[in-house]
Amino acid sequence: MRGMRGGLIALGAVGMAYGAWLLLSRQDLGQIVEVALWLAAAVVIHDGILAPAVLALGWLGGRLLPRAVARGAVTVLVLLGPIVLVAIPVLGRFGAKPDNPTLLDRDYTQGLLGFAVLCVCAGVAVALGELRSRQRTVEEEQS
């Protein structure tokens, strides 16, 4: 185990060093600075905006929502949240080119709404399932 861990760390360090060398040796300074900015911005946006926003949602949901509804809400959040982020490039059509009708050739708003409806249905099903199982527990206790 010790040898394996040492080997993995050595291999990982070599990988990182090689990648860093590739990054620094094949582009000009302006490009390298921009990559560094992207790397920093990614952490700042995730740790500073996205994660606190999800924390705040969880905190609010935990206080305001009854347990069954909270279960449904978490279902919707985990299924739909990441997909909304994934959809940003196509929703905004940022890469669209006027002379190429084969690129971004769908109605993405409609598609995302359709998926959101599916997620809400799944959330409602989960919440109802929780209510029913609790009812059953109560009935069993009473009988």
Partner: peptide, 21 residues
């Protein structure tokens, strides 16, 4: 403004190296 191919290729080694560590 950076090259997608060069950057995506280089960062792959950094990311997987850090993952191994």
């Amino acid at each position: 403004g950076f090259s997608f191919r060069t950057t995506h290729y280089a960062l792959a080694f950094v990311a997987v190296g850090a993952l191994l560590v």
